[in-house]
Write a protein that binds this DNA or RNA. Sequence first.
DNA 1: CCATACCGTTGAGAAAGTCAATGATGTAGA
DNA 2: TCTACATCATTGACTTTCTCAACGGTATGG
Lengths: 169, 169
Amino acid sequence: MSSPTEQATPVQDHSEPAAAADSPTEGTGRFLDSDLTHQVHFLTSRARGRGISHANGQLEGLDLKVRQFSVLSLAASGMNPSQRELGEFLSLDPSQIVALVDHLEQRGAVRRETDPRDRRSKIIVATEAGQQLHGQALKILEDSEDHTLSTLSPRERKQLRSLLLKIAF
Amino acid sequence: MSSPTEQATPVQDHSEPAAAADSPTEGTGRFLDSDLTHQVHFLTSRARGRGISHANGQLEGLDLKVRQFSVLSLAASGMNPSQRELGEFLSLDPSQIVALVDHLEQRGAVRRETDPRDRRSKIIVATEAGQQLHGQALKILEDSEDHTLSTLSPRERKQLRSLLLKIAF
DNA sequence: CCATACCGTTGAGAAAGTCAATGATGTAGA
DNA sequence: TCTACATCATTGACTTTCTCAACGGTATGG
């Protein structure tokens, strides 16, 4: 199908009406038909980029990023994750977890507690202040997500979450 | 403010059966119920990470990454994108586009052609070799995506693409 | 002609990702 | 018990990606 015959398509061939200036989707919308737009990794990348960017902006007031929130969230869950577990679940290198936990610990949001069953591993738990911070951030993130998914019906949002869950693990 | 009241859920409270060693989802599956797992940005991040990681692995033989492919793909589309348009559509800084195009150009996969209508902008077009490379990569990426979405039915895949498309733009 | 805006490019620095090595600790077998 | 080996958190080095400011060449509108 994709045998690239001599169709080199010179530039002057892109005959677009000179009135392209007032196109509807502000210029790059013409790529919406491209092959790329059908690739799931491209769509997830873009969706993620937009969502995270907006979320980070909204979290600015708390001086927190989604990256840090994800660690705080698990720490505040009462599930007592170890750093290794955090790394695995969040798809982050152990060394990155160290930096993240360092930051949250200096901020007084989490504590490192040595696991009595395995003194090599450290359990990350949220402090009282951390719980509070998590609560505030969660609220903001819910609003942010609501904004990101504003073009989706409640039913579609549920579907999306369900589908993503299936391919995320 | 941050007086840590002694209610901090001590570690020995995480009473888990000692037989946890043979748990089904290899350890971190116990976080699947956490709040985080309900957040779309977390799910998209994980899904994207897994997908791109696998895709990049499969593309290794072509010495190509999805990042570079996305540029090549638009260059090979016959839509004559300018670098600015590439940046906007791919959510990348213009300076990153320069590097990406430089690399593909040195490889002989794309050409920069000055737009006769606006000599500031450069149109990126795929060479013959670039078209061929794109064809091979596309095939590999389709297989990779098939692998990433293996837990989804054809109908679900279509739904997913449709939903992602709605929130990606 | 002039001021202003835009495009690609360069360079610098921050953030994020990857990898190897180490000390402390746990585990299993001789 | 002693010994070899594996695992966890940590550090450090390095690469990749992101973000931003500046600059030359070009376009646009007065």
